[in-house]
């Protein structure tokens, strides 16, 4: 009953567009969007190049990125903290406990995800696509575009997975953002705080939003895939 009551109250918060809840969701989406975008800009081309080209040490590079997938958020938090703290190399920037610090940490967290998944998506593409494009007179760049086009859903899935990872992570947000109300409080850090306080209503409301965002992103991905494949 307690759970259902809390859940009902959470829906009331959502439907009433509670300002605090909206602010927290806004911070989460803002930080996650920019970190995912930045990680895409770096990770997709890197993963694509690693996947499509053959070079000495390729397997070692792939193993490195696969290993980085298991990097704990607290380790990233500590690492970035040591760099951005007052005594750190980039301490003068004053980014610690700001959304910028959270974005930096999250980029480190999800870039390996995007790289590794993009490599996997590109590597899965049948070599006959490359051969076919070549025999039809394509240049290297045009062949690469064919492979990219065929791997697009795999790459999109990589981006969705990365976004899902950052929006639901807590370690980096807590350590580098500091959970400052209205500035760096995200859905996950707020949920942890509310739990500590024994206040489940906002925590549940945020949980529903978190699930809703995840559902929405996946539905959008499915819709795009469906439309493209007709």
């Amino acid at each position: 009953m307690f759970f259902l009551d809390s859940l009902w109250a959470a829906f009331e918060l959502l439907l009433g567009f509670d300002p605090e809840l909206l602010r927290i969701v806004g911070v989460s989406l803002n930080v996650s969007f920019w970190s995912t975008l930045a990680a895409c800009v770096v990770g997709v081309p890197a993963g694509f190049l690693i996947g499509i080209t053959g070079f000495r040490g390729k397997q070692a590079v792939i193993t490195f990125f696969n290993t980085m997938l298991a990097l704990p958020t607290v380790v990233i938090g500590l690492l970035v903290y040591s760099v951005l703290s007052r005594r750190g190399v980039f301490g003068s920037l004053g980014w610690l406990y700001t959304q910028k610090a959270m974005i930096v940490g999250q980029i480190i967290l999800i870039t390996p995800i995007i790289v590794a998944f993009t490599i996997a998506a590109v590597s899965r593409i049948d070599d006959r696509y490359r051969r076919t494009a070549l025999t039809l007179g394509a240049s290297r760049r045009q062949v690469a575009m064919v492979v990219l086009h065929e791997a697009r859903f795999g790459i999109m899935a990589a981006i969705v997975a990365a976004f899902g990872r950052v929006i639901s992570e807590i370690g980096i947000s807590m350590m580098l953002g500091g959970n400052a109300k209205g500035f760096t409080r995200t859905m996950t850090t707020a949920m942890a705080l509310e739990y500590d306080k024994g206040e489940f209503v906002l925590a549940l409301g945020l949980g529903v939003v978190l699930l809703g965002i995840s559902l929405l992103v996946n539905v959008l991905l499915g819709y795009v895939q469906g439309r493209t494949r007709r």
Binding site: T132, L134, T135, L136, G137, V146, E150, T228
Partner: peptide, 23 residues
């Protein structure tokens, strides 16, 4: 590569199991 591309445009290969681009 730079020399081969014009030549490849004169020759077409149809493989036993051709693939269609997803278009």
């Amino acid at each position: 590569e730079s020399y081969l591309r014009p030549l490849r445009r004169k020759v077409a290969l149809v493989e036993q199991h051709p693939v269609m681009f997803s278009r």
